[in-house]
Structures are given as C-alpha cells and as structure tokens.
Design a protein around this nucleic acid. Structure first.
Length: 471
RNA sequence: GAUCCCAUCGUCUAGCCUGGUCUAGGACGGCACCCUCUCAAGGUGCAGACACGGGUUCAAAUCCCGUUGGGAUCACCA
C-alpha cells in the first residue's frame, strides 16, 4: 500500500471558517492516524479575491487549533506555469481544444437553454472546429468522454455513478492563460501524489469532472471521501448569517482550541457514545467508517458545554495562562491580578464551575481584581438592610481579631455567630455575599473571602454595614 | 429545471454493512427532584425519534422500490 498523503486546500478569500477547520481536522486526523503526510495547499488562483492576509489568517487559525502541516504552504500561484504546460500537453494530445465562445455568448445560451427547460451544459460547438492557433481570445476546453459512466468510490458515501453525458467539456485554461480550479486541483493532487482527497461534499459534483482529467493526464486517481456539510440552525449551509463562523472568533469568545476541535470532530464522526476525546484518542480512533453521511447542524450550546468540560478538567495553571490575556484585554493589568492572594491561578477552582468560556471567567473575576468594588444597587437594596448590620459588624470584628484567615476558620467563625444569634444561614450569608462582591451570585462566601484577602474582606464588610444602616 | 447527496429524539449521534439481543442507547438543551450560603457544578428521574407508503422475510430502524421532505452543485469562482 502506497503512502498516505492528504491535503487541506483552502482558498484565501477571507477568514478560516468552521467548515474549513472541520475539513482540515478530518484530513489531519486521517494523516496522523495512518502515519501519513498532511499538506497545506493554498488555492489562490483567483487573484482578484485572494490576499496574503487571508493566507496568514488561515495559518494562524490552523496553528491555534493545533493542526500542524508537514508540507507547504504550497501556493498555486507559484505553479501557474506548470498548469499551463500540462494543459498544453492535453491540447497536443488532442484531448483538449480551443474554444472561442465568449463568456457573454455562453451566458445567453445558458439562459436560453434554461428557458427551454433544457440542461445548461456547454453545447460543444467548438469541439470540432479544430482551431490550432486561435487569433482571438480563446479558452482551452477538455474533451470529456461522452460515453459510459464515471464511478466515484467514495469512502463515506459509497458508490456514486454519473452518466458521462451529463458532463461538460470544462474549461481548463481561461482566455487570460490561467488554469481553472478544476484543472489545477487535478494537476496538484496528481503530482503531489495525494492518496486521499478529503473535502466537503459540496465537491461531489466536481469529482466526475476531475476523474477523467486524472486519467487523461496519466496521473493516479486518488481515493475520495466527501464530508457532510455543517449547517446553521435553519438547516442551510453555515454562513455569516448564522453568527460567528471564523475560527479565530471562537478564540476571542474565550473557547479553548481543544474544546472546539473536540466539538467539531463529533460533528459527523462518532466513536460509540464517547463525547470527550483527547487529541490522542481522536487520532487513535479516527476512521471513515464512522463518518456520518448526512449533514450536521452546528449547535453553539453543545460547543459551550464541551468548552466548560475542558475548562474544568484543565490544570488551573494552564487555564490561568490562557485567561491572563483576556483579563488584560478587559483592562485588568498585573497590579489588578496581584490583588488576589495566590494570583489568577487561585481564581480558577472557584470560578470554573460557573464558567463556560474565558469571557465568563473575566466577568466572574471582577470583584477580586478591583480595589473599589461596584455595588449592584438592586442587590444592596434587597439584602443590605439595617437589621442585618449588627451581625455583619460582629462578624467583621471576629475576623479582625482572629489571626488565622483560612477558609476553615472563617467558616467556624461564621457558624458560631449564626448559632449564637439563632439566625438562619441564608439570612446572613446572602447579605455578606452582597457586601463582599456587590452581587447576589458568587462562589461560596468563604472562598470569596480567601480570594479577597483579609484587608479587602474587612473593608468591604464594613462598607456593607454602613450601607445597611442607611437602608 | 437538471445532476448528485441525505433522511433515528428540537440538536449531535449509537444501532444499519453482517435483519431477531431495540418496549431504539448516549450526549447537548428542556422539565422535576435531591444537594445547598446564592449561582453553578454534581446526582437522580421525566418528556422526546426510526419521515411516509409499499414490498422481501417467521421477523425490518436495519434489505429493496416508490413518495415526500431537506441539502449541494450546475461560471473563463474556488
């Protein structure tokens, strides 16, 4: 069996979208699973729409998700001469011909055909003109065999049969001298010895057009695996209308790359009932047999859940590392981070049960990062009432007098107090929480105090007392 | 319109190839309860699907045909 070689071949006309990442991921997984080679090829033959920035963005996105490539990036614009030579080879062999129909003529003929309800394929009128040296702008067309069938043995969808009569004589060289997509892909896949073409199933209809080209060029026909599409909630192809579709947007929204990859791999592939996979497990288990043949709807809710799983199961130190840039972007510098006893890392265990994204972390971390806290007025009005002031005051005094500031000690102090005063836990805990954090929702109050440190704890409880007395 | 693909809970899916073990399993989301200083997390439970119609067979989610529905593609874009 010859060596496995696969490629991801995006065109750099925008950002790297979710569907692209999933295609890249499946290629990458297959390569890693089989000890093969993963190639990054940039399909930038559309010079009007391709940009260098977009190439960079694609590579950044792949690096972020951890999809490393073994060869490339290979740019098709560096290989234009090669495509031209291969196209002319075909012409010399009589397998291609010059077509002088103008794009406008073609367009009107298509419309007429459509109006008559006929299929809109090129009528082949230049096929037998035998133009050897065109004196006007001409495109080179490939003479597609019109007899028999072209059969695609798809690793995911099985056998797909096309009658060759439905196949167009496709243009392989435009009148401006540049190769078209369907031609350059075949030349590249063939010359790069690609063993498996793994791409979105929006390409299935291209496949019977490409197979005869491989054959005409004398190049080995690769195996094909057409991945089902990723759809939006309305079951149409995922696009900007459905919200964020750029991978890097998910980075900004506070998703972990491992989580996104994990979510994406389960979109169209399964391994029994398993939901969470390490990269190693994905590589180990990946196979086409368990790739779904139907399209999948992208579900942001489940992505969040997967992300939350990763947030909770990643070492606090690692989470702190990726969280720090988010804190800084939100304006919380080193000085703010240093206010937390134990630093940002100490925040993780308390906040991660309540966070689905790193952005949630930032939101939850605010009370511990600032010196002067912002008080939620509604919460203060509801919970900080005059009646509770003496209890809070007493608790503050107890804490101040106690040299040990551990969670256990704090808990003992608090319990002793409510027992002596015969109060209900909830009646005092909630006002205390509001005094400490300015909010009605937070981690447990002892954890909160530990994250605040003794000074800020006392200062906030006393400010809370004053506030309560005015209420 | 033509060609091609697809069809299990709202969503992601297991099961389908190799019919019986499926009164169809898991996960997200939803609901309820438990836990509880709030919110979460966690635990327990509930609701929720084989698109429809024909065959084949002792037996069909599984095989075949049709219908319906969805999607993709039909450029001198990629």
């Amino acid at each position: 069996m010859s060596k496995i070689r696969v490629r991801f071949a995006p065109s750099p006309t925008g950002f790297l979208h979710i569907g692209g990442v999933r295609t890249a991921l499946f290629n990458w997984l297959f390569a890693r699973h089989s000890g093969g080679t993963f190639i990054l090829r940039i399909e930038d033959t559309d010079k009007d729409r391709s940009t260098d920035e977009a190439i960079q963005v694609i590579m950044d996105g792949m690096k972020w998700t951890g999809l490393d490539w073994d060869e490339g990036p290979i740019r098709q614009t560096d290989r234009l001469e090669l495509y031209r030579e291969k196209a002319m080879d075909l012409f010399k062999q009589g397998l291609a011909y010059w077509c002088v129909c103008t794009p406008e003529e073609l367009e009107t003929r298509r419309k007429e055909a459509q109006a008559r309800g006929e299929s809109i394929k090129y009528d082949g009128r230049c096929r037998n003109r035998g133009i050897s040296e065109p004196t006007e702008p001409a495109a080179l067309r490939f003479s597609v065999p019109q007899e028999g069938q072209t059969v695609v043995q798809d690793l995911i969808k099985g056998e797909i049969v096309f009658e060759n009569t439905v196949l167009d004589d496709l243009i392989i060289l435009r009148s401006n001298g540049y190769a078209t997509y369907n031609f350059s892909v075949v030349v590249d896949d063939g010359l790069m010895n690609i063993s498996h073409v793994i791409r979105g199933d929006d390409h299935v209809n291209n496949t019977p057009r490409q197979i005869p080209l491989f054959e005409a060029l004398g190049l080995p026909v690769p195996q094909f695996a057409h991945l089902p599409m990723i759809l939006g909630a309305d079951k149409t192809r995922l696009s900007k209308r459905h919200g964020a579709t750029s991978v890097l947007a998910y980075k900004e929204m506070g998703y972990l790359p491992e989580a996104l990859v994990n979510y994406l791999v389960r979109l169209g592939w399964s391994h029994g009932d398993q939901e969470i996979f390490s990269i190693k497990e994905m590589v180990e288990h990946f196979d086409f047999k368990h790739v779904q043949s139907s399209a999948a709807v992208f579900n942001p809710e489940k992505l969040k859940w997967v992300n939350a799983q990763y947030l909770r199961n990643t070492e606090p130190q690692e989470v702190a590392e990726v969280l720090t840039p988010f804190l800084e972007a939100a304006g919380y510098d080193e000085a703010a981070q240093a206010r937390i006893p134990g630093g940002v890392e100490a925040l993780i265990p308390s906040l991660r049960e309540r966070s689905e994204t790193l952005l949630d972390f930032v939101e939850g971390a605010v009370p511990y990062l600032v010196e002067a806290m912002e008080m939620d007025e509604a919460a203060a009005t509801k919970h900080l009432k005059a009646a509770i002031a003496p209890s809070l005051q007493e608790f503050a005094d107890l804490v101040e007098a106690e040299p040990d500031f551990s969670k256990e000690t704090l808990e003992g102090l608090f319990h002793g107090l409510i027992e002596r005063k015969e109060l209900k836990m909830g009646k005092v805990a909630q006002p205390l929480r509001v005094a400490l954090t300015g909010r009605t929702v937070s981690p447990g109050i002892y954890e909160v105090m530990a994250l605040l440190g003794k000074d800020r704890t006392l200062q906030r409880i006393r400010a809370g007392v004053e506030r309560a007395l005015k209420n």
